[in-house]
Design a protein around this nucleic acid. Structure first.
Lengths: 348, 348
DNA sequence: TATTAGCACTCTATGTCGCTGAGTGCTAAT
DNA sequence: ATTAGCACTCAGCGACATAGAGTGCTAATA
């Protein structure tokens, strides 16, 4: 559809615009790129590219600015080129930094966001491992004092969840332990989302003696599981967006930052898109949420074994250094997966 | 030192300026407050107040702006007036909202920050209970699989800390339990900051058989305790600062937001000042940290029983609605203490 | 003696005007 | 098909005038 010259010109404009954030004129192209044609020709081609929807003009006598469609073309091309190139030296460099302070998954993700934001100079986001599809590895009750019991649930994705709850009926340590063991036998290995009231009734049937206690424990477990679905968000470099001239407008900046601060939005943003691709990119108007309709979001999966359990991403202006962002995001995501594998062990 | 009329004028200026954020002229005062004197008299008094350091002029032909010294006077007065007035209806109203979603301390604090920011329209900060001075209520080890052990530590301040660690030497469930019980016997009730290497040696001496395992557990405990000191920060309404005209300057806004995002700074800000007073206020230049030298920070303690275990605060421009901020902050802090008492029980 | 009316003066904010420079788009020549 | 040339457009910028809010001083007043 686009002939070679148009493509070259379009890429030249995109590259220049990514650097300068200023509309690009025909003379700028002739000066900076040796395309062997005059500025008038470039002008004609630019006019065509505008008609085709790849370029926009801020006003009639200004230079051109790439459209979202142009970035899409550019990025799709870039992804193809990038695939085989992994800079292993850089990956190890990042890994070294990550390993230094990441003995727990939450630290790991926080640090990943930090380092990613530092390398790319865009805002970085990470979401903690999600429980959907996870299995219970351990559930146990421990008496803390006469009336308080600590419940701990560990998932095979490495998430640990504690709840302290009160029991009104006095209960002995032995009884608690019996129940704890029984719950563990029943629930260990089960997918988290398979635990429901039927199962609870099952359990009660088997040990009717403890019905009262079980009855009070079940809601605690359910609440805990609810909480466990409630993933955490790690953000870093939120204010980086203020460095870009397109966010000199306070109202825009405020909208953006408020959006990033809104946990529910970000969870939805990161988890409610497809996870088929390793790297997902949504550019400007492709984004569902209004506050980021002139941003680009790049996300990558991280895994435990071969199962995708979470995401990390960068978000910045559509005029973003996609090459840098994509490649570094990819390196960080690989490292996260590797380190999680290390922390949780290969056997599951 | 200040006669009654000067004081009235100063208060009038402060009140007007808090509302308008614009330098206050002598005529504004005569129009809005009935002081029974002409604008010329006000002008003379304002000139005196400026000489005394209570007022500043942005430029020679502008109105006056209160100095930090003026706010200090105003706030000290306000605190005296405010002390006996607690709006119990409002307190219960806030409590109702807080109770709805705060079954764990972290949610409680997050929600407190949220509601506080919503009521005051300033940025709200809260710090999770600190472990300094806390006692260990429970420590236990649980085998998860052949090589992994979950360690859980519960403090009497309601903080629960989990660490999953690996043991290279194979070890039976019974052995783990024995060690777990022993550690619990030894450490339960001890102040967290009393746990050190001497104690570790003590333990090893008593059960030399398990030396290897104890040796590998001790560093895990230490690391966990380290983490446990590492309090969390909850912030809400960070972008609220952008609503104030004094932060229309992007660079200033960026500095502020970056500061709030810097966890270490905020921890220091909240915990490293005296805790003698229930409400602490630092105004503008009284603040140590440069990025908030034109902000005011108001903090309140929350308690478990009679022990101060954490802080919550609001931060906004020095031109802040102190009355609203102080009284609501106080109500929220009382509620936090009460709810924590409920969650953790009165018996310790 | 304290207060006030009156006035000159100061300074910012705002709006207007014209210029400049970068850029486009068209036409005619190559 | 390409390009030189030119008229035209428009944002950005500085210069300038003006308005308006406010001060500080002086002299009159109670």
């Amino acid at each position: 559809m686009l002939d070679d010259r148009k493509l070259k010109i379009l890429y030249a404009i995109i590259n220049s615009y990514i650097l300068s954030a200023e509309p690009i004129g025909s003379r700028t192209i002739t000066k900076q790129y040796d395309l062997g044609v005059s500025s008038a020709t470039i002008r004609n081609e630019m006019s065509d590219l505008e008609d085709l929807g790849y370029l926009n003009k801020p006003h009639s006598s200004a230079g051109r600015v790439p459209s979202d469609k142009a970035y899409r073309l550019y990025v799709d091309q870039l992804l193809k080129m990038l695939k085989p190139k992994i800079d292993y030296d850089k990956k190890e460099e990042i890994k070294k930094v990550l390993l230094k302070e990441s003995r727990e998954i939450d630290h790991l993700l926080q640090n990943s966001a930090k380092i990613l934001s530092a390398i790319t100079s865009y805002t970085a986001l990470a979401v903690s491992p999600k429980m959907k599809g996870a299995r219970i590895k351990l559930i146990q009750l421990v008496p803390i004092d006469e009336h308080q019991v600590l419940m701990t649930i560990v998932s095979d994705t490495g998430v640990v969840k504690n709840s302290i709850f009160r029991l009104n009926t006095g209960i002995s340590e032995d009884q608690i332990n019996t129940i704890s063991n029984m719950l563990n036998d029943k629930l260990k290995g089960l997918p988290v989302d398979k635990i429901n009231d039927d199962l609870a009734n099952d359990i009660i049937k088997e040990i009717y003696d403890y019905k009262n206690i079980i009855d009070s424990v079940i809601p605690v477990i359910n609440k805990a599981l609810e909480d466990i679905y409630d993933v955490d968000i790690y953000a870093d470099g939120i204010t980086k967006i203020l460095d870009f001239p397109e966010y000199k407008d306070l109202e825009k900046a405020k909208t953006f930052i408020s959006f990033i601060e809104d946990k529910d939005m970000i969870v939805d943003l990161l988890l409610n898109n497809s996870i088929t691709q390793d790297i997902e990119i949504s550019i400007g108007s492709e984004n569902v949420y209004a506050p980021i309709k002139d941003c680009s979001l790049i996300t990558a999966n991280y895994r435990l074994g071969d199962k995708v359990i979470g995401k990390i991403g960068v978000i910045g202006p559509t005029r973003m250094d996609y090459y840098n962002a994509i490649s570094n995001l990819y390196l960080v995501s690989i490292n996260i997966s590797e380190i999680i594998d290390m922390l949780l062990g290969r056997k599951r």
